[in-house]
Simulated scan of single mutants.
Amino acid sequence: MKNVADKFVDRRSTSADAKAAALRAYLAAKEAAEPTLLARQAERKAVAEARDARRMERERVKAEENERIRAEAAEREAAIEAAARAESDEREAAQKNRVSRVIEDEAARKAERDRRYANRKARQA
């Protein structure tokens, strides 16, 4: 039985040595990668800042474009309103002109009727 126990102890110590060696290798690799890790982090940060700057520029350009479109729409709307107002004023002026012509014609007819009536009365007298 001693032979089996020795093999077990050997395997256990070999396993512990392997774990310790793996831990040392991991820590050494981590320490060796520290400068490149910092460089990669700095590079990632620079890329992220550049991306944010580009995004903000796109948003600014988009906002300016939207503002320009809104201004053009407001100008078009104002032009349409002015045209509608001018057309309405023109119709109103035409209506007033027709009304005044009708009144003038009516006044002329009354004056002609009164003149004929006065002539008829003058002939009868």
Rank of each mutant, 00 (worst) to 15 (best):
A108H: 06
L27G: 08
E106K: 10
Y117H: 15
S13P: 05
K7E: 09
D114I: 00
A84V: 01
P35W: 02
A74E: 01
A46E: 01
E104T: 05
V61A: 09
I103C: 09
A111I: 02
D52M: 09
K121Y: 12
L37F: 01
R120K: 05
A42C: 06
A94R: 09
S100H: 10
S88T: 01
A79P: 03
R60C: 12
R40W: 02
V47P: 09
E87K: 09
R40T: 02
A25Q: 04
M1L: 15
A21P: 04
N66H: 09
A28M: 06
K2P: 10
D6L: 09
A33T: 04
A18T: 03
E59A: 10
A32H: 13
V99F: 14
V99M: 12
A21Q: 06
E67F: 06
E65W: 09
R123V: 02
V9T: 13
E43F: 06
A118P: 07
R70S: 02
E90L: 05
R54P: 00
A28V: 00
R68D: 07
V102C: 14
Y26H: 12
A82P: 04
A46D: 04
A48D: 08
E87F: 03
S15D: 13
E90V: 04
A83V: 13
K96F: 10
V9S: 13
K62M: 11
A32P: 08
D10H: 15
R44G: 01
N119R: 14
A73P: 05
E72P: 05
K2G: 15
R60T: 10
N97W: 06
E77Y: 01
R109S: 05
A42M: 04
Y26C: 09
A82V: 10
A50Q: 12
V61P: 07
E31I: 02
D6Q: 10
E77L: 00
T36H: 07
A79H: 03
T14V: 07
R116T: 15
A86G: 00
V102Y: 13
E92G: 04
D89F: 00
K30F: 11
A28W: 03
L27Q: 11
A74C: 05
A29L: 08
K2M: 13
A5Y: 12
R76Q: 06
A50T: 12
E31L: 02
L37P: 03
E65C: 14
L37I: 04
A5R: 13
A118T: 07
A118H: 08
R85L: 05
K2L: 14
R11S: 10
A83D: 10
E112C: 13
S100I: 09
T36R: 11
L27W: 13
M56T: 01
E77T: 03
A78Y: 03
A5W: 14
R60F: 11
T14W: 10
A39H: 05
